[in-house]
Nucleic acid binder design. Structure first.
Lengths: 333, 333
DNA sequence: CTGAAAGCGCTTACAG
DNA sequence: CTGAAAGCGCTTACAG
């Protein structure tokens, strides 16, 4: 038999679709117990599964969220998506996953697709230059929340961030207190505002401490390869380095591998500090010291905030800042 | 202004919705160039984004796929999802991500949700005991493809697998050839059929080689913690062990950490062999030797097969087997 | 306590 | 070459 519909149930129960809809959605109390039970029982017998696309067309709600991010394979993002999906599930939402691979074009394509699918909102982790994409969301009145990566924009938006200034300061001060003076800094790609924010913070704090050296600043992607390549560049300079501060753990992972392969001992010959505190950072060898961002909490709060916005519980644009924290392990001494 | 609809375009262009729908979907050629262009232009001016839920209600197609898996944070799954999403995107499908955390109940909840959302098909990586869930899919005539983890079932289904028997044999023979005779084997949880298949393969090949020892078989979850705990149990036996063969890299990662923390040198004191070849396995220290499964290809083929089934290009149940491969790195000597 | 009817925004035979 | 109309399966004022 074909999939049962409301009408099928209504016919069998000798009532109207209205009534069936009402009881199945627990809408009103004024339905006799008898008909309620009959409806429930028949719906059970038929293994009725409602067609929510029909419902959505009528209600304009889909109970689904879009999540756009650069690359799910990156542990930082997979941990965050886990948090988002966990939270969404509790709040009765599904999640559509979109990998942008940092392409503004792909972001745009996904955004239009998500809009056409009538998602109730989107969580957006930008790959860079996403201002125009934000406008599309805005023009279509789709609620959204930015996570982790600021977007340069004239518009206001809601977002969950972890203070980059503070994170970098904590890291540099820690290295400084350990006696490090020649600290190489590997920033992220300049198309991302967080890269520039972290760089700015690095410049400020190192200048304040009197250890600023422009030649010690390197740039690369937030990837394992980016960590490898930037480390190669660092070693190629021939400058004496006490420590390398990578602005992501994934970079640090690649960097450590490169150092180790080239005969350096960590932290004996060089100290390494990461950023993010992804779960595997403590399973590396040696265990990675890092500036932790509360990744799970960020994803969780982003999802909660988005749902609050969808439900009209948050009217103004709301920005939440979380605190970074130093995690001492074995790569700095 | 509110979101533009087909009717809005039709009014402005002085034509019927039918015609607008036709040209926007490139359906027929018999529309005058003049009206076609007018429609296209107006649709552009209005930034028209079609409401695909309305379309879906009419066509019974949503161009979205459901993916159910245990835990996106596990690199094995995030790599696979990446492959699935990449492929889906190329074929014009979106992906709804569902983490089951190995709960049969959660799988069931998600499956019903996906059915109610009219997904065109689902890719299913079971967390165990999923036969009943398969039946729900079947009863509702939702195409699905199983990946990696077999499901004990009376029904036939389509799936993509990598030969477990062969993988275990390759691994054991490699260790044997390296002179290992006391090989501990850490199998996965017995609720998963692949755990039992791999165990069976282990038993067969070790018996054939004359090195079978029941006391060397351990069981745990396919997680970092599972690797840690099983390794502790192994060491607690006090039995002399030459090598440990973990049936997943994630387990091996935890196991190596435990060994290292307890003063063992790898591979000097003990050799370690993993299974899967997740990307980070080559960034561990020492680099993990492992039996590779073609993770990306598995995800890719699963998605392609599913879409072929959806489009009626594959009528019978189709099962594809891929080949495992030994990756020699530094944890076995 | 219950139902008839309109409407959500598309697609698709069918007719002309 | 173009359009009127029915239909997809729900929800929701509104009426009684």
């Amino acid at each position: 038999m074909a999939k049962a519909t409301l009408t099928d149930i209504a016919k069998r129960a000798n009532v109207s679709k209205t009534t069936v809809s009402m009881v199945l959605n627990n809408k009103e109390i004024n339905v006799s117990e008898a008909t309620r039970e009959k409806i429930l029982q028949i719906s059970n017998e038929l293994n009725y599964i409602p067609n929510t696309v029909a419902r959505s067309l009528s209600t304009k709600k889909t109970e689904t969220l879009g999540v756009i991010l650069p690359d799910i394979e990156n542990p930082f993002f997979s941990e965050m998506v886990k948090a988002i999906e966990d939270t969404a599930e509790k709040l009765n939402y599904n999640v559509i996953l979109c990998n942008s691979y940092n392409s503004t074009k792909k972001e745009e394509k996904y955004i239009k697709l998500l809009i056409s699918k009538l998602v109730d909102g989107v969580i957006f982790i930008s790959g860079g230059n996403s201002e125009k994409n934000l406008n599309i969301l805005d023009d279509n009145k789709i609620p959204f929340v930015i996570v982790d990566r600021y977007i340069e924009s004239s518009k206001k938006y809601s977002g969950i961030f972890c203070s980059n200034k503070e994170g970098i300061e904590i890291g540099i001060k820690y290295l400084y207190d350990k006696g490090k003076r020649n600290i190489a800094f590997v920033k992220g790609p300049s198309r991302l505002k967080i890269s520039e924010l972290r760089l700015k913070a690095y410049e400020n704090i190192t200048k304040k401490l009197g250890i600023y050296n422009e030649a010690l600043i390197f740039e690369d992607e937030f990837t394992i390869d980016g960590g490898i390549m930037s480390t190669e560049k660092i070693l190629d300079t021939g400058i004496k380095i006490d420590a390398i501060f990578y602005s992501s753990d994934v970079m640090a992972l690649g960097g450590m591998k490169f150092l180790l392969r080239n005969g350096y001992k960590i932290p004996r010959d060089i100290s390494v500090l990461g950023y993010d505190n992804i779960n595997i950072s403590m399973f590396l060898e040696p265990e990675l010291s890092t500036v932790a961002q509360p990744i799970y909490t960020m994803g969780q709060e982003a999802c909660k905030l988005l749902v609050d916005i969808i439900n009209g519980k948050v009217k103004e644009h709301k920005v939440i800042f979380l605190k970074p924290e130093l995690i001492e392990r074995d790569t700095v001494r």
